[in-house]
């Protein structure tokens, strides 16, 4: 069963409070029970306490799948990029190294790549993925676009990301300032940016 079209995933790293609820809940998902697929990263530990949850962005043209020599990664018709197919994955780590968002995890002991599949057992029947169902600050939000637009009046959703000369379009959206509304989020340009932590963005949390 496909993920209902009116339901979308929205991430907002600036709202993350680092509680790790998503990490714990993720391993309860039936499609990867016992394995947490979400990454919770300190953005730059020495300068800021800010954390960010990273889930699979489910690219329209997934680099991980294209560089897989075993053709083990498939994208379902509803745009969800699934974990590597167990009979095919040869544990080469190409996908882990190629993903521009740094998402797939190599389970070396199992000789298998595993990744966030948007909790397909849940999202395909219209339920929220585990992480979105427990995130207290709603940094991870799964629902209708109208709903998040109503709840976050200063934010808008963007699903295009720039890495040098490459633009990647994704199924998952990121919340950005509505007034600026950039065409894409320039991720590679962030290499030149200082990390966050200079001020506390209460205005972000209030929107």
């Amino acid at each position: 069963m496909p993920v209902p079209e009116h339901l979308e995933f929205f991430i907002d790293p600036s709202r993350c409070i680092g509680c790790e609820s998503c990490v714990q809940a993720c391993s309860e998902c039936d499609t990867h029970r016992g394995h947490s697929m979400i990454h919770l990263e300190y953005v730059e530990r020495s300068r800021t306490t800010q954390t960010t949850p990273v889930i699979c962005m489910h690219c329209d043209s997934p680099t991980c799948a294209e560089v897989c020599p075993a053709d083990a990664i498939k994208r379902t018709e509803d745009g969800v990029v699934q974990s590597a197919r167990k009979p095919r994955c040869i544990a080469c780590s190409n996908c882990v190294l190629a993903c521009p968002f740094g998402v797939p995890k190599m389970k070396s002991d199992l000789e298998l790549m595993m990744k966030c599949d948007m909790c397909y057992d849940r999202s395909s029947v219209g339920k929220k993925p585990m992480c979105a169902s427990v995130c207290p600050s709603q940094a991870l939000f799964f629902g209708a676009r109208e709903e998040i637009e109503r709840l976050r009046k200063r934010s808008a959703a963007v699903n295009r990301f720039r890495f040098g000369n490459q633009t990647v379009t994704t199924k998952v959206n990121m919340m950005v300032p509505r007034d600026a509304r950039p065409e894409y989020v320039d991720v590679a340009a962030a290499m030149e940016e200082d990390s966050l932590g200079g001020d506390i963005m209460l205005n972000v949390l209030s929107t």
Partner: peptide, 19 residues
């Protein structure tokens, strides 16, 4: 991969700071 994950948040933060 770890830096790629962090940079996603840094990029979003930069947009908010500039806004």
């Amino acid at each position: 991969p770890r830096c790629r994950r962090s940079m996603l948040a840094v990029a979003q933060g930069a947009l908010w700071e500039s806004a």
